[in-house]
Nucleic acid binder design. Structure first.
Lengths: 244, 244
DNA sequence: CGTATTTCTTGTGTATACACATTAGCTTAG
DNA sequence: CTAAGCTAATGTGTATACACAAGAAATACG
C-alpha cells in the first residue's frame, strides 16, 4: 500500500471525508456506512473507522443510538450560537491577555500581522486581496488565542473555530462582489486594532467587549445573506451542511 | 465473548481506562501501549484503540507525534484556566437564558432542584449530606446549561465539565472534615439562587457575572488546599493527574 | 386483512495476522 | 573514544475474517 502525500490512510480518509461532508454531499443526519466508504476510498474499514472517530472529535459526526456515525445536523440557530460562542471565547482570551500581560515579542508579532492585513486593502480601496486577508485574519485570531496565555482556552478556541461556519473568516466573500461585505472589512480591522490596543493598556473589560462584538460581524453578514441575497446563500459553502 | 453490563467492549475499556488514568496510575505524558492494555483487560487491540479515541475526544489523552496516545498532562495553571473557562461558559449560559427567556416549566424544574439542595443542609447546620448535595449540584449546573436554549453551548459546557477538576463539584470535600469548605457551601447556594433570580428578571449581565464569580469558589478551595492543607491535597482525587 | 413471528440481510464489533515505521542498541569505522 | 550506520525488536497501521445484533421482509396464523 502506497501512502501518497500523507502519513496514514486514516488521515487521508478523514480529510477526504471532511471535504465531502462540508460540501453537503450527505444529508444532515445521514448515516455513514463503513463498508461503502471503505470501498469508495479503496481502503479497508479500519482507517475509515479511525477517520470517523476523528471527525466525531471535530464535531462533524455524532454517534448513532445503535452504533455507527451520523452526519451532525446544524440549524441556523446553531450557527448563530457557535459564532456567539467564539465571540465569548475570544473575548475571554483578550481579557486574560490584558489581565495577565503579554510579552513585547508576542505584541510585535501580532502587530506585524495587523500591518500585513492593512496592506491587503491599502493598495486600492476597490481591489482587496481577499484570499490573503482571510489567511491573515485566521492568523490574527490564532495569535490572539495564544496571547491569552492559557493553553486550555487556546485549545477550545481552536475546536470551535474548526467548524467552517464559526471560523474567523466565515461569511466573508471570497468573491468580492458584495459591496456591503466589503464595507464590513474596515470596521473589522478597526476592531482588531482596538483589541490589541486595549490589551496593551491592560483594559481587560474593553478588550473582551470588543472581541465579543467583533464576532457579531459574521452574524450580520449571514443575516444579510439570508434576507437580501438568498441567491448567494445557496452557493455559500459554509451553509452547505445547514438544515433549515 | 460475553458482554457484561455494557454494550461493547470498547465502552467498558474506555470506562476502565478512564478510571485508571484519573486515579493517577499513569505518569502524565506516559505513552499508553495498546498491546499491554489489551492483555490486561483481556480483549484485543481493536476495542482498546477505540477506547483511546474516545478518551482523546474527552481530552484525557493526546496523540503522540509518531502515533499512539499519551496521557495528557495538566498543570495547576490548566486547572485554574479550566475552571475560569467553565465560569465563562456557564456565565454565557446564564446570560443567554436571561436574554432569550425561559419557560415556566424549566424554571419550576430548576427551582425544585434548588429546594432539594437546601434540604441537604437544612436538617442540621453541622451535618450536611455531601453526596446528595454534589449530585444535585451537578444537576443544577446541567439544568442551567439547558436553560441557555443553545445546544452548541450545552455541548461545550458538558465537554469542559467532564474533566474532573473542572466539574461543578470539584474540590468540594467528600469527607466533610474541613470547616472552611463547609462554610463555602452557603454562599455557593446563595449564588445559585441569585443566578436563577437574575434570569427570571431578565438581568443578563448580572446573571453572567454571578455565574462567573461562582466558578471562582473551587479555585479558592484549591488554593486553600495547596497552601494550608497540603496533607489533604495529596489525597484529593481531582489532583491525581496534575503534574506540578 | 392485520398482526405477530421468523428468517434473512445488512452493518457494526471484535479478533487476529501481517506490513511497516520508529527506535534503541550494537557494531564498526574514523 | 566518539559518531555514524546497521540491525533487531517493539509497537502501531491496515486488511480481513468472523461473530453478533438490529432491522427489514416475508410468511404464517389469528
Amino acid at each position: 500500500m502506497k501512502q501518497s502525500s500523507t502519513r496514514t490512510h486514516a488521515i487521508r480518509v478523514a480529510i477526504e471525508l471532511r471535504k465531502r461532508i462540508l460540501s453537503g454531499e450527505f444529508e444532515g443526519g445521514a448515516r455513514l456506512f463503513e463498508v461503502a466508504l471503505a470501498e469508495s476510498m479503496h481502503v479497508s474499514r479500519t482507517p475509515v473507522r479511525e477517520a470517523m472517530f476523528r471527525l466525531a472529535e471535530e464535531g462533524l459526526l455524532v454517534r448513532g443510538s445503535s452504533g455507527g456515525f451520523l452526519v451532525r445536523t446544524f440549524s441556523l440557530d446553531d450557527v448563530a450560537d457557535a459564532l456567539e460562542l467564539r465571540g465569548v471565547l475570544e473575548g475571554t482570551a483578550a481579557r486574560l491577555a490584558a489581565e495577565r500581560g503579554v510579552s513585547a515579542r508576542e505584541l510585535r508579532q501580532i502587530s506585524a500581522t495587523l500591518e500585513e492585513m492593512d496592506a491587503c486593502f491599502a493598495i486600492s480601496p476597490e481591489d482587496v486581496d481577499f484570499d490573503a486577508y482571510c489567511d491573515l485574519n485566521a492568523r490574527f485570531h490564532s495569535e490572539l488565542a495564544v496571547l491569552s496565555g492559557s493553553q486550555v482556552l487556546e485549545r477550545e478556541i481552536e475546536r470551535v473555530t474548526r467548524l467552517p461556519f464559526a471560523s474567523p473568516s466565515a461569511f466573508l466573500p471570497t468573491n468580492a462582489d458584495v459591496p456591503a461585505f466589503r464595507l464590513s472589512l474596515g470596521p473589522a480591522q478597526d476592531q482588531h486594532r482596538e483589541i490589541i490596543l486595549a490589551i496593551t493598556e491592560r483594559e481587560g473589560a474593553r478588550a473582551e467587549a470588543i472581541a465579543r462584538e467583533h464576532a457579531r460581524i459574521p452574524r450580520r453578514n449571514l443575516h444579510f445573506l439570508l434576507s437580501e441575497r438568498a441567491d448567494l446563500a445557496a452557493r455559500t459553502p459554509e451553509l452547505a451542511l445547514i438544515v433549515t
